[in-house]
Structures are given as C-alpha cells and as structure tokens.
C-alpha cells in the first residue's frame, strides 16, 4: 500500500506492543460483548432464551418503563454533580499533598485510608456523620444557624449525600494527580518565580497544562464511574428512599439477577454503552484544544 518502510515498521511494532490487549480482547472480551448484544434483542432469563423480541426491549425501556427513566435521571443527576466536584476535591487534595511539609507522608496515608477500609465500615460511619439528629455534619451546621436536612433519609437529598460520600474516596484520584504533579519539572516553576509570577499564574500556565493529559484521564474515568455508579446505593440505600438512589446500573443489576430479565438488562447496558461512547468521543474531541502533550509526535 502507500506506506513507507518506516510506517510499516511502526505498524508492526505498534501491533506487537499492543498484542497482550488484542489477545485478551479476542479471548475474553469479544464473545461476551457480542453475546450481550444478541441477548439485548431477546427475552433471556440468564439461562434460557425464551423468545426473540427484536427491538422490543429497547422500545419498552424508552417508551413505557417509568423506573428506567427515573434511574437514568438519577444517574445523570449524580454524574453532573459527582464529576466536577470529584475533580476539584481530588486536585486540591493532590496540591496540598504536594506541599513541601516534613510530615506529609502521614497526611497522604490518612487521606488514602478510606480507599483501604472495607465499605461496610465506611458506610456505618457515614450514616452516623450524616444523621440528621445526632450527626456531626448537622451539629456543625446548627452552630451557624442552618437546620441541616435528613441527608440520606430524605429523597430530595439522598443523591447529593452519595455524591458527598464519594468525595471520601478522593484520595485515590489524588494519588494519580500527585504522581503527575511530581512529574512537572521544578525548573519551570523556578523560572516563573524569578519572573515574579503569582501562584495563580503558575497554576494556570504551568501546572494545569503540564498535568492536562492526566486530567483528561481523570475526567473520562470519572464519567465512566458515574455512569456506572452502583456500590453505595447497593450497600447503603438499596435504591431508596422512594427510588431516589435507584441508579441505572443498580436497576440493571436487579433486572439481570433479581427479576430474571437478563435480556432487558442487556438492552439497558447497550444503551448506556452508546451514551458513554458518545460522551467520551465529545470529551476526546474537545480535549484536543486543552490537553497539552509535551511528547506529542507531530
């Protein structure tokens, strides 16, 4: 074809280095993905296919299933809060943990702890902290004259409470940001300082561009995580109160394993897939303007 020798060599090397994933894709991903696409057009209990329904599952969920709409709404609501908030919290934490303080190792460990401890211990403490009557959060709010809401027990606040709780795990993302902040050459800051640049300008014109590839990573992963938010609702609220934390994947899981509607669950999964893919492509396209790759091959 119209490839130079160099291009051919690059193609061969590129494929060779990517081989582990390609092998894994063929062995363990392609078939389950294709199977689930097929299931989405059937009535499938998880064990037996009892009928082929064409687009029936898709039509039912888009036109008739009220709970589907509710779960989609809940998820998008969660996503629109959790993604920006999670980004800000994680980045601020990372910047703090990047300060030259002698005992910073201790703080890093503390901040990371919620990622280590089992979820049930964390959920207990959260319910306790957010308790409207005795919880620390409302006690503090009361001091400043605000009557705090019933965080988890009030359907209007429950989603926001789960967003708040998710920030407790921000230590994980903060570690990735921290690793990337460590990579920013100190010489850049030194030059800027001698030029008398303000802290904001250093952040805006050095830090942000230098870590922008990792920001892109974080945003896309946070989007995926928010689209598929499941665990907190599964272990703490069981989707309640009044279905206010019935997230998309929780409802999907119930259809798949509790209601024996694996076909319907597969259709839900594929709709979510399309939604996530479109979102990702938009983010990727727009990111080209913001993300600065030092090592960009031109």
């Amino acid at each position: 074809m119209g490839m130079t020798r160099q291009e051919k060599r690059a193609l061969v090397m590129g494929l060779a280095f990517a081989a582990p994933w390609i092998i894994g894709f063929v062995l363990f991903v392609a078939y389950p993905v294709a199977a689930s696409l097929y299931y989405s057009f059937t009535e499938f209990t998880g064990l037996d296919i009892t009928g082929f329904v064409g687009f029936g599952n898709y039509i039912e969920m888009l036109t008739r299933d009220e709970l589907f709409h509710k779960s989609l709404y809940n998820t998008l609501y969660y996503l629109s809060l959790a993604v920006p908030l999670g980004f800000i919290v994680a980045l601020c934490l990372a910047m703090l943990l990047n300060l030259k303080i002698r005992e910073v190792s201790i703080y890093r460990t503390c901040v990371y702890i919620p990622n280590i401890i089992p979820a049930f211990a964390a959920s207990f403490v959260w319910l306790w902290l957010l308790n409207p009557e005795y919880g620390l959060v409302n006690l503090v709010l009361e001091q400043v004259g605000i009557w705090g809401p019933g965080w988890v027990s009030d359907p209007r606040w429950s989603k926001f409470s789960i967003v708040l709780m998710a920030q407790w795990g921000a230590g994980g993302s903060a570690m990735i940001f921290l690793a990337s902040l460590q990579d920013v050459p100190r010489s850049l800051y030194e030059v800027a300082e001698l030029d008398g640049a303000s802290a904001w300008r250093k952040f805006r014109y050095i830090t942000l561009p230098m870590i922008s590839p990792v920001i892109l990573f974080h945003v896309i992963m946070a989007l995926f995580g928010a689209f598929q938010v499941f665990t907190p609702a599964y272990i703490m609220t069981a989707g309640g109160p009044a279905n206010s934390t019935l997230f998309y994947v929780l409802y999907l899981y119930r259809n798949a394993f509790n209601y024996g509607k694996m076909g319907y669950a597969s259709a839900m999964a594929w709709l979510l897939f399309i939604l996530a893919l479109v979102t990702t492509l938009i983010v990727m396209k727009t990111s080209a303007r913001f993300v600065y790759y030092q090592g960009e091959e031109r």
Binding site: S123, W128, L130, M236
Partner: peptide, 15 residues
C-alpha cells in the same frame, strides 16, 4: 416524616 426518618437513619446500618 423528616423527623421520623432522620431519627430512624441513626440506625440505618445494621450496626
């Protein structure tokens, strides 16, 4: 309802 559920959620977890 807010008062009851608030009260009850002190005991929301099994612990």
């Amino acid at each position: 309802i807010a008062a009851i559920q608030g009260f009850a959620s002190a005991f929301g977890s099994e612990a």
